[in-house]
């Protein structure tokens, strides 16, 4: 009986160990950064619906969404992007290793995104035309990294 118990315990330990080992690398970081992306998409959805004319322009709601977008940009998420946490290490991510390469220009691209989010923050509460005018800049900002550092999707 003792032997059987010991065997079972060992098996359980071994199984648990395996389960942990099978956890894909950087799974938590990747989940967290994808959550931030989704948070941005939801706030952009508020702005975009007004820009497209699907929702009535609401200065307060637009300002709030733009403030949220800016807050998500200024958040220090550097710990979520460790070297090697790319698509080849874990297919749950669509980030390309090129992002971490020397001279990738990631800093300039991040700065361009922050500038575009700031422009949106300044425009969103003014009027609908200002909001619409700032959408393209934000799109370019997002696209800056998505074009260069994301697994191509057509």
């Amino acid at each position: 009986m003792k032997k059987i118990l010991a065997g079972l315990t060992l098996a359980t330990v071994a199984f648990t160990g395996m389960a942990i080992a099978q956890d894909a690398p950087f799974a938590r970081e990747i989940k967290a950064r994808q959550g931030i992306m989704m948070y941005r998409a939801i706030n952009l959805g508020v702005l975009g619906a007004m820009a497209k004319g699907e929702a009535e322009y609401d200065a307060a709601a637009a300002q709030k969404a733009a403030d949220n977008l800016m807050a998500s940009i200024t958040l220090d998420a550097s710990m979520l992007w460790p070297q090697g946490s790319d698509n080849s290490a874990n297919p749950a991510s669509t980030a390309l290793a090129a992002m971490w390469e020397e001279g990738s220009g990631i800093g300039d691209k991040a700065k361009a995104m922050a500038d575009a989010a700031a422009a949106m923050q300044a425009a969103a509460g003014v009027d609908l035309a200002s909001l619409q005018g700032a959408m393209k800049g934000v799109g370019d900002g997002c696209g800056g990294c998505h074009k260069a550092f994301r697994v191509p999707t057509n």
Partner: peptide, 12 residues
């Protein structure tokens, strides 16, 4: 115009 899909992902 901006490259945003209806889900607010950007064109790839």
């Amino acid at each position: 115009t901006s490259g945003f899909t209806p889900d607010y992902d950007s064109a790839g």
